[in-house]
Design a protein around this nucleic acid. Sequence first.
DNA 1: CTGTTAGCGCCTTCAG
DNA 2: CTGAAGGCGCTAACAG
Lengths: 346, 346
Amino acid sequence: MATVDDVAKAAGVSISTVSYALSGKRSISQTTRQRVLKAAAELDYHPRASARMLAANRSQILAVTAPLHADTDHSVHMQFAMEVTKEARSLDYDTLLLVHDDPMEGMRRSAATALADGVVVLDVDAHDPRADLARTMDYPVVFVGIPEQSEGLMCVDLDFEAAARLAVDRLIEAGHSSIGMISHPRITIERESNFPLRFLAAFEEHCRARGIAHAVAYPDGNHSAVGPVDELLRTLPDMTALVLNTSSDVANSALPALFAHGITVPHDMSVIAAGAAYPTHRLSVPLDRIPLDAHASCAAAVDLLVAAIDRGMREARTVLIAPEYQDFGSVRAPAPRAEKTAQHSA
Amino acid sequence: MATVDDVAKAAGVSISTVSYALSGKRSISQTTRQRVLKAAAELDYHPRASARMLAANRSQILAVTAPLHADTDHSVHMQFAMEVTKEARSLDYDTLLLVHDDPMEGMRRSAATALADGVVVLDVDAHDPRADLARTMDYPVVFVGIPEQSEGLMCVDLDFEAAARLAVDRLIEAGHSSIGMISHPRITIERESNFPLRFLAAFEEHCRARGIAHAVAYPDGNHSAVGPVDELLRTLPDMTALVLNTSSDVANSALPALFAHGITVPHDMSVIAAGAAYPTHRLSVPLDRIPLDAHASCAAAVDLLVAAIDRGMREARTVLIAPEYQDFGSVRAPAPRAEKTAQHSA
DNA sequence: CTGTTAGCGCCTTCAG
DNA sequence: CTGAAGGCGCTAACAG
C-alpha cells in the first residue's frame, strides 16, 4: 500500500516527478526516472485505481452489456465477452460485466457514476432500446451488432448480408438451383435479434434475384435440426444444398438429421454453415464455413470505443467485417437431376 | 454531472447531510431527508464512483478470474460468471472480468490497485497457483471449486464426492452391479481440473467399497461419446448402467452412441448425468440428473466474499453444496441377466 | 439531528 | 527538467 509520497521520498524527488516519471506524460531525465522506477519497484508501488480515476477523470474501465434472453447461446456470449476483455486489456482497460434484467440500467448507471468510460453492447435486437438510449447519452457506446435504426451509432459486425450472398453464390457456382436454409430458433427471430434477420432477408432476396428456388425453416425449442430438415425436404423436394445460419446445437445435429433420410453430405447434399461462431471441421463430415469471428468483431469494436474515449473520435459509423469462406469440402456439384428423377420415379 | 455540493445547495443543507441522507449511515429527520432526495432526483444526481471509492476505500467491485484453457466449456463458464454477477449486483457490487493469460496477474493487479474489493476464482485446478497466491495475499478471495490443498482458503462447490456416491447408490438400489462412467476429456483431466478428479476418485472408491464392477472412459478431443461408449462396452461387457460426469456435447451424444449398439435407455441401460450444468430433460430420452447448479455455488461464493469484505468474516472454510437427485425416468432395474446371456449366446 | 472540515491518493497546471 | 500546491467528489470523524 505504498503511495506516490512514499516513492517520492524514497527516490528523493517530488510527487509530481514520480507521477510523470511513471506516466511518461512529460520528459524526465534518465537518471531521476531510473531512481523513481527503482524506488517504485522496491516499494511495490501501484497507483490506487480510485485516486487515479478521480484525478484523471477516467476509469480505464469498459462496461459490457450482455442481456440474458432465454434463448441466448451462452457459449457465443462468453466468447464475445472474452474477446472484448482481451482486447480491452491490451489497451489498458478493464472490463465490467453488466447483466441486470433491465438492459438499460447498467448503461445508465455506468455512465452516470462514471464507473466505466464507455460501453460495448452485445446481442443487439432490431429494435433495441439501448440504441435509443445510446443516441441520447453523450457517452461512448459501440454496438457489436446492428440495430435496424443505426443512424448516429457506432456499430461493428460481420457483414451478414454479404455472408448470405457469398453462401448462395458459392452454391450456385457449384451448380445448385434449389437451396434450403435453417435459421435460428423461432423465439430468437420473434425477439428480433437482428443478425438472423439480416442474414435471412439477404438470403431470400439474393436467391430471388438469382432465380433460385429456396425455403427457410426454423428450429423450435429443442435445438435440433430434425424438424427443420424434415420440413425443408417436404417444402423443397428438389433441394440439393443447405445453408445453416443457426446455433451450434442445430448445426451439429444437421448431419445425422439428413442421414436419417438417407442423405449423405456432400454427395447428396451440399452444406455451408454461415455466420458460425463454432467450429465445423471436426464434425463427422467437415462443413464449409463462413465464420462469425468473435475476435475480429470485438477487437474492432473495442478499438473504436477506445478511440472514442481517448481521442474523442465519436463520428457515428458502421464497420462491416467482410465474410471469409472456409472450404472443407462439403460443397459439390449436385447429383445429376436425371438420376434423381429416375430414383424418384423408380 | 451534479455533485453533492449541487444537491446540498438545492436542498439547503450541508454536504454531509446529503451524504448521510443518501447512504442512510446516520439518522436524518424525515423532512430534510425528503428534501435531499427530491433535490437529488431533480438534479439526477449520482455519486461519482471514483470519488466514492477513494473516500470510502472500497470499490464495490468484485473481480472474477476465469482462465481460458483450450478445453474450457465456454457455456458453463459464462453461466458461472453471470451468476456471480447477478448475485454481486443484488449486494450492490459490480463485477470485473479477468481473463489475462497469466491467471495471477489479474488477481495481483486488482488487489494492488484496490480496483476490486475481492476476487471470485472460477475453474480451479488441483494444483492451482491461485490458491498459493490467495494464501499470501491478505485479500478476500473465494474459490468456486476446491484445490487439492484448500487449507486457509474459502471455497464453495457442489459436493462432487457425494454426487458420485449418490449416483452409484441409486444405481445399486435399482439393482445394477456393473457401472460404466464417462468422465471429462483427457486434456481436462491432465490439467488436473479438480472437480472431475474428485468425482472420479469418489466414483471408483465407492464402487469398490460396495463391490460393484466398474470402468471409466475418457473422451478425446472430438467431444463425442462414441469412443468412450465403445470402450466401456468392451471393457465392461456386463455394464447395465452408465454415469456421465462429462461435458454437454459428450452427454448429448451418449444416447445416439448407445443406440448405435442397439442399446436403448432406460430399457437396456440406465443413465445418470451427474454434475451436469446443462439440461438433460429435453434429450430424446430425458436423463436423470444431479445438477451442477451454477446459481447455488456462485450465490454462496459471493455471499461469503461479501461477508468477508463488508464484515471482515475471513475464516477459511469450505462450503459443500449437497447434491440433489432429479428423476426423469432414465434409471430402471437392469434387464434380467439370464435374458441378456441368452441373447448373447443366440 | 445537522454542519464543518480534514483527508482519501493522484494528476496537472503553474512557477521556477 | 523539477517542485509546490490546488483540486477531483465524496466520506466520516469531529463538533455542536
